[in-house]
Design a protein around this nucleic acid. Structure first.
Lengths: 132, 132
DNA sequence: CAGTATCCCTCATGATACTG
DNA sequence: CAGTATCATGAGGGATACTG
């Protein structure tokens, strides 16, 4: 069919664009590090390896589900290593891999900019909200 | 009451932590730039000002709702300026502010790391998925 | 200790229709 | 042209309970 509704065409464009975006490295990284728990875990592990229960304690407010799910994602992406010590009870340690460590400077750059410019952002917001 | 259920305590911890996180500049920035449309808009505007319709065309797949909503957020945060020319029909131009331009190096750092390391991430994923 | 399995519910997003 | 208003849905995340 050569005839498509406008809705159809828009839909197709969206799907195609989604596919394109999914293959964009920068967007992939952004999707990873912007996750609430990812940044917290990465930050917690920057000081050295931690056990599951440590992470659960340090990162107050994370549910077991999300902690496990996020750690799996990071392990899968090669950013974090998972080491099981088959004692009783078992002991599992998580640590940053070299790749994970390499990400630190980027995270730091984000942090730096944020801390240096957040006041301007907040000021802009107040101004914006103040205009009737 | 000094007595609380475990569920109650966990709930409280989560709320408190959420509040704490909301006030973290790095997380705020992360929340902003990680938005799918934010990064695309910022990137589109890095070449110079664009009209609403231009953005709508260049960023294929964005809905009017999300485009408008995202532009408003960026304007509110002082990253983007909105200029209305009261002709008939009206013309609205969007451009990066100085603050918005200042964000570019950070975005670039993210892009650089992503492009330089995405292969390792993909390789890690394949390895991970391959193990039974 | 370190998870897995399940249910549930909210919120963000998108489609659609309308407007100054 | 540049939006606003409304409705529907679906995916992400939390609470809870169970397990090797």
């Amino acid at each position: 069919m050569a005839t498509q509704t406008a809705a159809q065409r828009r839909q197709d464009a969206r799907v195609a664009y989604d596919a394109y975006l999914a293959s964009c490295p920068a967007r992939e990284l952004l999707a990873t590090i912007s996750d609430k728990w990812v940044s917290l875990i990465l930050n917690a592990l920057s000081g050295g390896p931690l056990r599951y229960s440590d992470l659960n304690r340090i990162i107050a407010g994370v549910s077991q589900k999300m902690l496990t799910q996020t750690l799996r994602r990071l392990e899968r992406d090669g950013l974090v290593s998972r080491t099981v010590t088959p004692s009783v009870p078992v002991r599992v340690d998580y640590a940053l891999t070299d790749l994970g460590h390499g990400l630190q400077p980027v995270m730091l750059a984000i942090k730096r900019w944020a801390e240096g410019n957040i006041e301007q952002v907040h000021a802009a917001r107040e101004t914006y909200d103040a205009r009737t």
